[in-house]
Amino acid sequence: MAFAAPKETYSGKVYEVAFGTENAVKFGGENVLPFHSFEGNVPNRPVIAYEIQDIVPDDWPETVKKVYEGVSGDPVKWAQYCQNELKAKAIALRLVGTHPDRGNRSPEDATKTVKDVLAAINIPLIILGSNHVEKDSAVLVAVSEAAKGKNCIIGKAQEANYKTIAAAAMANNHKLIAMSELDINLSKQLNILLTQMGFDKEKLITDPMCSALGYGIEYTYSVMERIRLAALTQNDVTMQPPMLGDVGMYVWKVKETMAPESDLPQWGPVKERGIAWETTTAGALLIAGAELLIMRHPDAVKAVEKFIDELM
């Protein structure tokens, strides 16, 4: 007897978002659950952006700091290294140095960094603040303007600062990351607020907040699944932007990515363990619905790209 494959049809669809100019990339656009091409359309593969930052990454663990040893003192060199040597498809520049506790660099400094990086690369750029609510307002407004015409992704707008950041992204024609904290209702709410002020919902990217393997990933995983189900099965337009997994930042601070093997022989070598932590976190979030990932270690990125090859 033939097996009657229980296919589903969905009423909704995830928006397709493109960013960059010359070598623009696209993600999203599917009308099915992640990698369910057997019952619908999955036009684009998820995109992985390499994370770089405006100051020396002193707080990154050895395994990932070492990769960028020669270039991480200069964001321009670092960006070029990702583009030319690592064949990055996109770069995410995090302006951590603007955080009041991390050097308090001014919006002008940040603007210069962004301009220099943009001039040095020909792949799309994501520009991230330092996650300081007030400072991000000032910094992200300035850099949005500096990056005008480059079709960047700007982030992150949160409930406490979305107005100024969204207005700047809108005025300068960028895409925008909207972040809320692990709660489907907060995420929906923020998207509604943004569209009410006139921001085009098709230019949004939802960040439901990442968490690392072993440190709450199940929350991010389920919030992403629920957002995607709402988008597809209930055709909820406020839940239809593609989703971001900001993986590297959450992974490369947990114990498993740094504790030496000599302290914990049962955990195996720290290098592979750290890469595995980033790889697993990224892989699980792809299955949950992320279309855009920000990652740090090239070996983790390579493994995840191979996984995507097999899934597409």
């Binding site: 199940e218 955990w267 195996g268 592979e272 363990r273 790889t279 697993t280 699980a284």
Partner: peptide
């Protein structure tokens, strides 16, 4: 079997199978 690989998979299995 690699210890690092097992650790990552054990952690994920535990996370995915916890009571939501």
């Amino acid at each position: 079997v690699e210890k690092w690989k097992s650790l990552a998979l054990f952690a994920l299995r535990q996370n995915i199978y916890t009571d939501p």
